[in-house]
Design a protein around this nucleic acid. Structure first.
Length: 434
RNA sequence: GUGGGAGUAGCUCAGUUGGCUAGAGCACCAGGUUGUGGUCCUGGGGGUCGCGGGUUCAAGUCCCGUCUCUCACCCCA
């Protein structure tokens, strides 16, 4: 029989890697909840049209799509925002605002895998729907930093690069760009940090044939190193608005993580206001997180015009980043007590004790093989058990057991009845897993 | 879709100008050990050398093809 390989771009989560995945996702959930977001989820596949309607037909080539037995064109979700928009649109008049929702969907994209990008991954999404103030944008950025800071990453490790499409649009209009050319400029600027100076100039000349316009754009970029300069040199109101946004981030205590960068525009057409991406300051990895305001998306999917903002953060780049810095703290489910029979005929006692401990919420295990004491203790060590309970002929007659602390190496002989009546006291410091 | 790199044990890899029955470390299993674990010692299982063809007395090694993985480009929700 031929062995079947795992599908390209997928991962097998053996217990140690599953522990990492759970640790990351639990961290996302905790950060979401303490910032006031509630969890939702949707189906893992949708009508193909939900994606093509938003992003155009060419997106279909990057989706895993299928036709079901009823002839319906479906696709495995490559992102959850369309699902979110669909769900919100469906109940828009019944949902109290602001809608602060989060999700950790499993997503699939039929792209070629490379470092930091796979065909199946998890992505933390948080969104605020129904609030047009940039307080909502600030809160999303704060929540992202809140999580990342909690993993141990410092302001010297990561940076949230922030810009504003509404500001950029105002500036482009001011220097003479017609609205229909903005998308071209957006995608051009998006490429600028990734290309060498000369290549970028050549590309710019191709995309913007008008020399005067092009030089105007370069002057703008050169002056865009700081918001102060934009506010003074161009006297742009939107720059002042963005400055106030940064002021808000400072009040929230995350400004050390945040920088203005006019090159951040995001690839997608639907962003309308604040846009941002989070990067590793030291490694040229792809973005760890990207988001922004999308005030027209719900309307574009057949709903009413409702303002919205949010971000997505993938698990793949995040894990690489945390791994490199030694910040991954995941561990498999720890064993509280390993119950051992030191003499023949006492296994029933082991089963009784383990069952009682389990009923009390502790993780209790025992050896499947009736073997000598040393062997069982070795097994207890291998499983990183914190305590061993030893039932032996010597003490069993007096109703006693030996409780051994495997970390300290100490042990005490105690009454079994006492132990079972006061497990929490005897096993203090051990996490109950209920 | 385009280009580079790599495929030898579960993992990381060694394998000389082609030359005996293909190796190491880690991991796994067992023993050392009939009342005390982590260290240590001994032994064991596990390989179609990615696959197919060719050259040769002889191929893990050389040649051709092919598949897979990986890194980068394109794209990036």
């Amino acid at each position: 029989m031929a062995k079947i390989a795992p599908v390209k771009g997928t991962r097998d989560f053996y217990p140690d890697r599953m522990a990492v995945r759970n640790w990351i996702i639990e961290g996302w959930r905790r950060a979401s909840r303490r910032n006031g977001f509630v969890e939702y989820d949707g189906p893992i596949f949708e009508y193909l049209q939900l994606y093509t309607q938003k992003s155009g037909e060419e997106i279909a080539g990057q989706l895993f799509s299928l036709t079901d037995r009823g002839g319906r064109d479906l696709a495995i979700r490559p992102e959850i925002t369309p699902t979110l928009a669909r769900m919100v649109n469906q109940q828009i008049n019944a949902l109290a605002r602001p809608i602060k929702w989060f999700s950790v969907p499993r997503l699939c994209r039929a792209e070629r895998p490379q470092k930091g990008r796979l065909r199946e991954f998890f992505q933390w999404n948080i969104d605020v729907i129904g609030e047009e103030s940039d307080i909502a944008d600030a809160e999303c950025i704060y929540t992202a930093v809140d999580y990342l800071r909690g993993t141990g990453l410092k302001a010297g490790d990561i940076v949230v690069k922030i810009s504003s499409r509404s500001m950029l649009a105002a500036l482009l209009q001011r220097i003479g760009f017609k609205e229909c050319t903005w998308d071209v400029v957006y995608s051009l600027l998006d490429k600028r940090p990734k290309l060498p100076e000369e290549t970028f100039s050549a590309l710019a000349a191709e995309k913007i044939p008008d020399k005067e316009l092009r030089e105007g754009l370069f002057r703008l970029i050169d002056n865009a190193v700081s918001l102060e300069q934009l506010a003074t040199v161009f006297d742009e109101h939107q720059a002042v608005v963005l400055k106030e946004f940064f002021q808000r981030l400072e009040t929230m205590g995350v400004s050390a993580f945040c920088e203005f960068d006019i090159n951040i525009v995001r690839g997608l057409a639907y962003y309308t206001g604040i846009v941002y991406e989070i990067f590793d300051r030291k490694q040229p990895l792809r973005a760890l997180c990207g988001g922004g305001r999308y005030d027209n998306l719900l309307e574009g999917l057949g709903g009413p015009k409702v303002p919205a903002t949010g971000f997505g953060m993938g698990d793949v780049v995040l894990e690489i980043m945390l791994q490199e810095r030694g910040f991954l703290k995941a561990q498999t489910n720890p064993v509280d007590v390993f119950v051992i029979d030191a003499d023949a005929g006492l296994f029933d006692k082991v089963l009784e004790i383990a069952s009682t401990l389990r009923a009390a919420g502790f993780t209790a295990v025992f050896s499947y093989k009736r073997t000598w004491l040393g062997k069982q203790l070795k097994q207890a060590s291998e499983q990183n058990a914190r305590f061993a309970v030893i039932v032996g002929a010597e003490t069993e007659g007096r109703g006693e057991i030996i409780l051994k602390d495997l970390t300290a190496g100490t042990q005490q002989t105690i009454q079994l009845a006492d132990f079972l009546a006061q497990t929490t006291r005897y096993l203090q410091g051990t996490s109950s897993t209920d």
